[in-house]
Nucleic acid binder design. Sequence first.
DNA 1: AATGAATGAGGTTTCATTCAT
DNA 2: TATGAATGAAACCTCATTCAT
Lengths: 197, 197, 197, 197
Amino acid sequence: MTDKRREIVAAAAALMHSKGYENTKLADILEAAQIGKGQFYHYFSSKHELGLAVLNYRFESWNQRLMENILSSGKDPETKINEMLDWVIEQQRLNQAKCGCVFGNLAVEMSEHDEAFRRKLETVFEIWVSKLKPVLSEMILPVQADPEEINKMAQGIVAMIEGGILLMKSKQDLNVLVNITAQIKFLIRSFVQNQRH
Amino acid sequence: MTDKRREIVAAAAALMHSKGYENTKLADILEAAQIGKGQFYHYFSSKHELGLAVLNYRFESWNQRLMENILSSGKDPETKINEMLDWVIEQQRLNQAKCGCVFGNLAVEMSEHDEAFRRKLETVFEIWVSKLKPVLSEMILPVQADPEEINKMAQGIVAMIEGGILLMKSKQDLNVLVNITAQIKFLIRSFVQNQRH
Amino acid sequence: MTDKRREIVAAAAALMHSKGYENTKLADILEAAQIGKGQFYHYFSSKHELGLAVLNYRFESWNQRLMENILSSGKDPETKINEMLDWVIEQQRLNQAKCGCVFGNLAVEMSEHDEAFRRKLETVFEIWVSKLKPVLSEMILPVQADPEEINKMAQGIVAMIEGGILLMKSKQDLNVLVNITAQIKFLIRSFVQNQRH
Amino acid sequence: MTDKRREIVAAAAALMHSKGYENTKLADILEAAQIGKGQFYHYFSSKHELGLAVLNYRFESWNQRLMENILSSGKDPETKINEMLDWVIEQQRLNQAKCGCVFGNLAVEMSEHDEAFRRKLETVFEIWVSKLKPVLSEMILPVQADPEEINKMAQGIVAMIEGGILLMKSKQDLNVLVNITAQIKFLIRSFVQNQRH
DNA sequence: AATGAATGAGGTTTCATTCAT
DNA sequence: TATGAATGAAACCTCATTCAT
C-alpha cells in the first residue's frame, strides 16, 4: 500500500468514525486528504471499497494494540483485563466521549444492508471474544473452564463494552463508560467465583 | 395529531429503524406512506422534524409497554426483569435480529451531530435506568440499597442489553442476544448476593 | 369590496411593496391576513389577480392623496410642488428608506413580462405627468406654455423622483432623496425662468 | 476565470437583466449555457454567488465602457456628457426599451433584502457620481466648484437617468428616455449657468 | 499518476392551486 | 363561506462517478 493510499484511508477513517460511512462525503475526504478526484479513483474503485479499507485499517491497529499487545501479552489475566478496559476508556477520552466505537458505529449503520461490512464487523467481534476466552480460562484456573460458559461470558463482556460506549456517547459523558468498566470487573469476579465453586 | 400524520410517522419509523435517519430518503417515506411531497410538508416542516416525531412515537410505545406495563407492574422484581428481557428478545425476533434497537441505532447515528436527537435519546436511557433502580432495590431487600451502586448496576444492565443487540445485529443471530440476557441475569444475581453480604 | 377582501389586499400590499410580487408567497399573505387558503381563493381567482388588486389599491390611495389632495388643491403651484416632494419624502421615511416606491418597484419587476401590470403602471406615471402639467403651466404664467415642453418637463420630474427613490433605496439613506428633491426644485426654477424668456 | 465560467455568467447576465435575479431559474441558466446541474455547481457554490458574479461582470464592462472610455476620456466635458447619454440610450435600444438598467433592476429587487447585492450596487452608483463630478467641475470653469453642489448635481443626473430608464421601461418606449436625456442636458446647462453667476 | 471538468440521477424543499368537506 | 388536506411540477442543491487531458 502506497503512502498516499494510506493517507487517504487515515483521513477517511477519522471522518467515518465521527460521521459514519454514508454521511462522510467524498468531497470531505478529498479535502481532508488534500487530493483530487482523479487521484482518489486511482487508488480506490469506489467509496465502498474505501469504506472497507477504512474498516481494515482500523482493524489492523486495534488488533495490534488491543488483541496483540494487551490481550496476548504475558501478563496475568487480571492485568490484561484492566489494561483492556483502560485502553477502551483512553480511546474514548481522545475524542471527548463523542464519537463512540468505530466498529460499533459501523455495525449499527451497515450490518443490515451491507454484507461486506457486516462480515468484517462480525469477525472483529468474534476475534475479540476469542481473545478474551483464554484470559477468562486462565482466571478460573485451576478449575477447567466450560468452553460454552467461557464463550458466553466473553461475549457478555464485549457487549457490555459496546453498550457502555453507546450509552456514554448518548450522554457525551465519559463517566458512564468508566462506571460500566467497573461493572465489567464485578461481572468477571463473580464469574470466576462462580466457576470455581 | 391527525391519523394521516400518524400514518406517516409509523411508516417512517419502520424505515428509519431499519435504514437509519439519513439513509431513509423522503422518497422512501412518501412511497411507504402513499402520499405526495406536498402532503408530507403539510404535516411536517422538514425531515428533521419527522425524525424527532419518529423518535417520540417509538418512545411512547416503548414507554407504555416496557416502562409501564412491565417495569411498573405489581409483579415481583425477578418477574419484571425476566419479562423485560423476554420483551427485548421478542422485539428483535420480530425483525429477524437484523434491525437492532431504534434508540441505540439513532444514538449511534445522531448523538454526535444532532443535539435534539441526542437529548431525547439521553432521556430514553435515563428513564430506563431510573425504572430499573427500584426493581433492583426491591430485589436486595431487606438490605437497604446503596443508591450509587444501584444506579451503576442499572446502567450496566442497559448497556449490556444495548451492546447485546448491537452484537446480535452484527451477526444477524438472535442467539447472541439470548445468551447475553442470560449473562444479565447472572450479573443481577451476583449483584443481589453481593449487596446482601 | 368586502372588508375581508380589503384586508387581504392591504396585507398583500405591504408584503409586495417590500418583497416584490413574485417573492411574496401566498403563504406569507395568508399568515399576514390571518386567513386560510380556501378563503383566499374565494376572493381571488389567482395570485395574479391579487397582484393587480394590490396595484389598484395603492393607486387609489396615491391618487387620492397626491393627485387629488395635493396636486389638485387650490394652492399656488410652488406649494403644490413642495407638498408633493414633502409627501414623497415622508412616504419613504415611513419605511426607513428601504422599500422604495411600489409603482417603481413593480414597474421594474413586472413591466417586461406582464402586460396587465405594465399597462396599469404606465397609467400611473401618465396620470402623474398629466397632473404636473397644469401646475407647471401655471408657474410660467403669464407666458403661454409650449405643451410639448411642459410634457417633457413633467416627465423629467417624475423620472427624477423615481430615480431618486431608487438611488436612496440602494444606499438605504433618505438624504439621497432629500438632495434630489432639491435638484428637482432647481430644475423647475430653471425651467420656469427659461420659459419666461 | 475559466471560459466556461464566463459563459455561464454571460448567459445568466442576459437572463437576470431581463427577468431579475429570483425569476431567473437555474433551469433557465442551464439551458441558456447548455450545461448540466453538476457543472453549474462545479463553478458556483450557489445561485447567489452566480448573481453576484453577474453583477460584477456587468460592472466590469460598464466600468470599462462608460466610466473609462467615455467619462475618463480626454474630450471636453460637454462631449463626455453627450457620449454618456448616447451610450445609455444605445444600451436601451439594444433590448428594445424593455429590460431597463441591470443595476437599477437589481437595486430595486435586491437592495432591501440582500446586503451583498446592495453594497455592490451602492458602489456602482457611487462610482458613477464620483466620475461625473470632475466633468461637472470642468464645465463650470473658470469658476471653482462647490464640492457639495457638484456632488448633489451628479447624483441628480444619475437619478434622472435611472428614473428615465424606469419610466421608459414601463411604457416600453425609447422616446421617453430620449426626452429625459434632453432634460438632463437642460438641467446641466442651468446648473453651469447658475454656478457661474 | 493526476487533474478537475462534466454528468445526471436523486436529494430536500417550495409553491400556487385544487378539492373534499 | 370557509377550512386545510392534497397535488405535483418545479425549485435549488448534492453527490458518487466518469471522462478528457
